[in-house]
């Protein structure tokens, strides 16, 4: 058997434990798909695989037990799924053209969840269109609100929804719900002054608890959608760590630009001996220093005056091995 494992990995297949058999990895940007695609996945799993599907930790599907020689047939069967999920693809019927930049994950967001501050799936799909396919190892995750159910702080780029609460004092009756829920469920950023709530804008994390709990529509959501962009969280062997805050109240366009700006940065600074040409971005930034990364990241980014940029980032986490 003669298989080019480098090519198959790039094609979103995997070398598995079982000699002679691979697994196909199906990306679902934003983790939301039309239910009509499931029978097609079932067909591939039952025809070419071992009849099972794994729901991956990145919200894709992995179809194990596929003989290597069936990869092209599987790619052809994947074509309608690739089209339905609107994945960029240079050549039809050839499956996925890269696997380095991982599936973009998202919590269910404002399509379903009352806390969601934006349509996480739609934003994930938008980012997918901008950055895929690419061989570099990028992990992007989106979550609808600061509850961070999507655990975006364990990704290279974590995007958290925010809303900027708007108060119409003429509709406030001082029922106290916003102050109470901000205190008990969020960060205690509200206090009552002269029978109306006053928001500590530095403390406020834009979670929307005040809006959700206001019974009179005195608090409403901002028309603009805002985000907190957190950087370079990771799991893994050397130094797992949570992402740190980069920009609070940042807009969608700037986030996309920052992620795209990171590709040339990585190309420039990635370790020449990185195994498989794959290195977590955070380790690269550990070497170059955050200042250097920031220069690249913010190139041509026009932040709104509301955006609060953290000029210095310090990450923590256990250090089992220091690079270099």
């Amino acid at each position: 058997m003669d298989i080019n494992t480098k090519k198959l990995k790039k094609n979103a297949f995997r070398v598995t434990k079982q000699r002679g058999y691979t697994a196909s990895r199906v990306r679902i940007p934003g983790g939301h798909l039309k239910a009509e695609l499931l029978p097609q996945l079932q067909e591939i799993a039952e025809t070419y695989g071992n009849g099972t599907l794994h729901i991956t930790s990145r919200q894709g599907f992995e179809i194990p037990g596929i003989p290597y020689e069936k990869m092209q047939e599987v790619n052809e069967k994947l074509q309608p799924i690739i089209e339905a999920t609107d994945i960029n693809q240079p050549e039809r019927d050839k499956g996925y053209s890269a696997s380095g930049t991982r599936n973009i994950t998202a919590c269910v967001g404002a399509r379903v969840c009352p806390y969601g501050c934006y349509d996480t799936t739609a934003f994930a799909q938008k980012i997918e269109k901008e950055i895929f396919p690419h061989d570099l190892h990028f992990k992007v995750a989106l979550t609808g609100c600061p509850n961070d159910c999507a655990k975006v702080r364990m990704h290279d780029f974590g995007i958290m929804g925010m809303t900027e609460p708007q108060l119409d004092p003429s509709r406030c009756v001082d029922c106290g719900a916003c102050v109470k829920y901000c205190r008990t469920k969020s960060v205690d950023a509200l206090k009552t002054v002269n029978n109306k709530p006053v928001r500590d804008t530095e403390k406020c994390i834009g979670c929307g608890e005040c809006v959700i709990n206001c019974p009179t529509r005195a608090w409403t959501r901002s028309k603009e959608k805002y985000y907190r962009l957190v950087l370079m969280g990771r799991t893994g062997k050397r130094n797992p760590r949570l992402a740190e805050d980069f920009i609070k109240w940042v807009d969608e366009k700037s986030i996309i630009q920052i992620i795209k700006n990171t590709y040339p940065f990585v190309t420039e600074y990635i370790a020449k001996d990185a195994p498989g040409g794959k290195e977590h971005i955070g380790y690269i930034i550990d070497r170059t220093g955050f200042e250097e990364y920031k220069k690249w990241a913010l190139k041509d980014v026009e932040l709104s005056p509301k955006a609060e940029v953290n000029q210095r980032l310090y990450w923590k986490g256990p250090k089992y091995h220091t690079y270099g």
Binding site: A110, P114, G116, C117, Y118, D119, T163, G208, V211, I212, C214, R217, T220, R221, K223
Partner: peptide
């Protein structure tokens, strides 16, 4: 109709 003016994201309120 107040567009997006209700409790949840992108939900209108009529008042």
């Amino acid at each position: 109709k107040f567009v997006g003016g209700n409790t949840f994201t992108d939900v209108d309120v009529i008042r």
